[in-house]
Design a protein around this nucleic acid. Structure first.
Lengths: 202, 202
DNA sequence: CTCCTATGGTAATGTGCATTACCAAGTCAA
DNA sequence: TTGACTTGGTAATGCACATTACCATAGGAG
C-alpha cells in the first residue's frame, strides 16, 4: 500500500537520521543530545518523538536502517568467477566496507549498546555482517570439489577473521589511519592466499 | 621505596576499582553512577575524588590497571617448544583470554570511550593485545627457516585474526555463549593448521 | 592529651538533558 | 473558507547524577 522504498519517502525522517548518524557515530549515544541532532537536521524535537518515540528508539531505527544501507551494497553474486577471484573480490569489498568511518562508527555504537539492548546487536548482525558470512559459507559450500570436505561455516569464520586480521581491531580503536587502495589489495590478496593454501592442505 | 606490588597496597583503592570494574564492564561508563560504585565498595565519594580526581579518572585508572592484570598473565616464553606447539598454546591462551567476560567487558568499555579519550585506547593496546602481538611477531621472526621469508608483522596480524575469527566478534556483541574447553581446543588447532599450511605454501 | 589529617556519611548544589507542553503558523481536504 | 491535523520554535518540567560542602569521628604524631 504505502511501503515504498523506505528511503526518501519522508525527507524529514531522512534528515533526522542523517544528522543522528553523524553525531551518534562520532560521539556515541550518551554524548549526543537531542538538541544537537535537531540543530543539525532542522525541524523540531516534537517530530523526533512523533517518529521514533524516544532517543533510544531513534538510535535503534538508525542502526537498523544504516545496517541495511551500509551492508546492503554488497554485490557478491557472480557465478562465473573462479573461487579465488570470488574470494578476492569479496575480501576487497569487505576491507573497504569495514574501514569506512561510518561502518566503524556504527560498530562502536552497537558494541556500546549491545548489553543494554540485546535485540539491537542481534538485528545488526543479522542484517549486516551475518549476511556476508552466510553468502561466504554458501560459496565455500559450492566449492567442495576444490576444497575437499570442509566445514563451510567454520571456514567462513576463519576467512572473515583472516581478512579483518588485526587491522579492524585497530581501526575500531581509532589507532590507525585508513588504508590506501593499494594496501587493501595487498591485504586481500594475502588473506586469500593464506586461506586457500591453508584450507586445501588442511 | 614505596611502590610495592601496586595491588593490595591500598585496600580501599582496590575495593573501589573492583566495584567499578563490575559495574563499568557490565553497564558501560555512562550508565554507571558514582553512587552505585560506592554502594558496592563501601567508603565515601570523597575517597573516589581524592584518589582518582573524577569519574573519568577512575575509568582510566581502571582500564590501565586491568589491562595489566588481565593481559599480564600470559606466560608465553618457552624456547624448547616447536613452532606448531608454541602457536597452539598461544592460540588456546588467547581464546580463553578473549572470551572471558571481563576481557570482553573491558573491550566494550575501551571501544565506547576510544574516540573521547584516544590515549586510553592507545595504552590499552600497548599494555594488552599489542604485547601479545609483539611476542607473536618475534616468535614468527625466529622461525624463518621453517616459514621462509615472510613479513612477520603481517603474518602475526593474520594469525590473530584467524584465531579470533568471527567468534570474538559475536562474543563482544553478546550473541554467543562462552566456549567449552573442547571447542577452544578445536578452534585453536584449526587456526594453527590453516595458518601454518597457508603461510608455508604462500 | 591534643591537634591534624583522612574518612565515612549525608546533604547540598548545579548542570545537562530527555521529555513534555504550548503556541503560532502552515497544509490539505471538503 | 474552514477546520482538523501536523510541524517549528521555544519555553517549561523534572530528574538523574557528577561534583562539592559540611560535620562528626577516628587514628597518628607530637
Amino acid at each position: 500500500m504505502q511501503a515504498e522504498n523506505d528511503s526518501a519517502a519522508d525527507p524529514r525522517r531522512e534528515a533526522i537520521l542523517a544528522a543522528a548518524a553523524e553525531l551518534f557515530f562520532s560521539h556515541g549515544f550518551a554524548a549526543t543530545s537531542i538538541d544537537a541532532i535537531i540543530e543539525r537536521s532542522g525541524g523540531s524535537k516534537r517530530t523526533i518523538y512523533a517518529l521514533f518515540g524516544s532517543k533510544q528508539g531513534l538510535c535503534e531505527a538508525l542502526i537498523r536502517e544504516n545496517s541495511e544501507r551500509i551492508f546492503g551494497s554488497e554485490r557478491l553474486d557472480d557465478p562465473t568467477l573462479s573461487l579465488e577471484e570470488s574470494l578476492l573480490r569479496f575480501a576487497r569489498e569487505l576491507l573497504r566496507l569495514f574501514l569506512r568511518p561510518d561502518t566503524a562508527g556504527m560498530y562502536r555504537l552497537v558494541v556500546a549498546e549491545a548489553l543494554r539492548v540485546p535485540a539491537l546487536a542481534e538485528s545488526y548482525m543479522r542484517i549486516g555482517p551475518g549476511r556476508a558470512r552466510a553468502w561466504l559459507a554458501g560459496r565455500l559450500e559450492r566449492a567442495r570439489d576444490e576444497l575437499g570436505e570442509i566445514d563451510a561455516t567454520r571456514a567462513a569464520n576463519q576467512f572473515l577473521g583472516l581478512v579483518r586480521s588485526d587491522v579492524y581491531y585497530e581501526t575500531v580503536l581509532g589507532l590507525r589511519d585508513p588504508l590506501s587502495e593499494a594496501e587493501v589489495d595487498t591485504m586481500a590478496a594475502d588473506a586469500v592466499r593464506v586461506f586457500l593454501h591453508g584450507v586445501r592442505r588442511g
